[in-house]
């Protein structure tokens, strides 16, 4: 495994993204972690902080297909996965691939779609395939779904069901930039210009190699115990109604591996786990406090509380 090559590529990806998303290197790390761990990313934030820019930047840096689906309440599953049509000329049914058959999908405002459409994504997310009319179609590799949702504007939205949330590897909140960076954003030529100037630094095969490198990262047994301790703590915490599933714990494991590669290491450290635990778990747990609209913040606070207690292996 050529780690050196992987690190240089990761580094150039980071550089690219830093040009378009100013002052958010941690968010970029999380996005790359999702990419390298073959996970899907959920970006939750108010409009205008760079959700789409991040997705776009990622797609433009990689020489891959990129498609954006704007989710609306009248979007149908077939609009996403594709539709079988009757070809009159050839006299048979033909599958016309939907927008999901691309390497990178930006599912913008995913919670605006109806549950039926949302669930159309389930199979794609967990199995990297879609089944239409009894025929299974494999999605291209690499495949990554980046979904965004607005946590403030709830009118006319359908909250994502737990089962679907659980399939997102990581969730991230971009947040407002620092004043300094915001000023730079304001005076800059504008998003499209920056994005347009980005050139692809890696291609699909490179990404596959990076993913392979990530899956070969060493994770000490004690770190697995650490993951386990955090995951199990969410199940007994008094403020949590629904704890983390084993899938969630496994995702933290794989994310930690990817995070190590993103940080130029062949081995995971407790920091990888601690840094990602909130991103991996915050959308998976259900708080018992249940303040409407504040769930995400509550979940993060609870997780931080757990992390402050979990004994870090030395």
């Amino acid at each position: 495994m050529d780690f050196t090559r992987v690190y240089t590529q990761v580094q150039s990806l980071k550089n690219n993204l830093n040009q378009v998303l100013l002052g958010k290197s941690e968010i970029i790390d999380v996005a790359l972690t999702a990419l390298l761990s073959k996970g899907d990313l959920l970006i939750e934030d108010v409009p205008g902080v760079g959700k789409t820019t991040l997705a776009h930047g990622l797609a433009r840096s990689i020489n891959c297909d990129f498609l954006r689906i704007q989710f609306t309440s009248d979007l149908l599953p077939s609009d996403v996965v594709g539709v079988t049509i009757f070809n009159q000329g050839r006299q048979d049914f033909q599958f016309r691939k939907g927008p999901i058959f691309a390497n990178f999908i930006l599912a913008d405002e995913i919670n605006r779609a109806t549950p039926k459409t949302q669930s159309a994504l389930l199979e794609a997310m967990s199995e990297r395939q879609v089944s239409v009319d009894g025929v299974t179609h494999l999605l291209p590799e690499p495949f990554m779904l980046i979904a965004t949702q607005n946590p403030v504007d709830f009118s006319g939205t359908f909250p994502l069901p737990e089962s679907q949330l659980d399939r997102f590897a990581l969730s991230v909140k971009i947040g407002y930039p620092d004043a300094e960076f915001e000023k730079r954003i304001i005076i800059s030529a504008g998003e499209p210009e920056a994005l347009k100037s980005l050139t692809p630094v890696v291609d699909a095969t490179d990404i596959l190699k990076m993913q392979e490198a990530a899956s070969s990262v060493t994770v000490d047994d004690d770190l697995v115990n650490y993951i386990l301790a955090i995951a199990r703590a969410t199940r007994v915490h008094k403020d949590i109604r629904l704890g983390v599933s084993p899938r969630g714990a496994k995702t933290l494991y794989r994310s930690a591996q990817a995070h190590a590669v993103v940080n130029g290491r062949e081995y995971a450290t407790p920091d990888d786990i601690k840094a990602l635990a909130v991103n991996v778990f915050s959308h998976r747990i259900v708080s018992a406090l249940g303040t409407h609209g504040e769930e995400l913040e509550e979940n993060k606070a609870i997780l931080c509380d757990i992390l402050e207690r979990a004994v870090v292996p030395v």
């Binding site: 450290t269 407790p270 920091d271 601690k274 992390l307 402050e308 207690r309 979990a310 870090v312 030395v314």
Partner: peptide, 10 residues
Amino acid sequence: EKESAETATE
């Protein structure tokens, strides 16, 4: 003193 929940880097 290193806190038990603190990672080495922290």
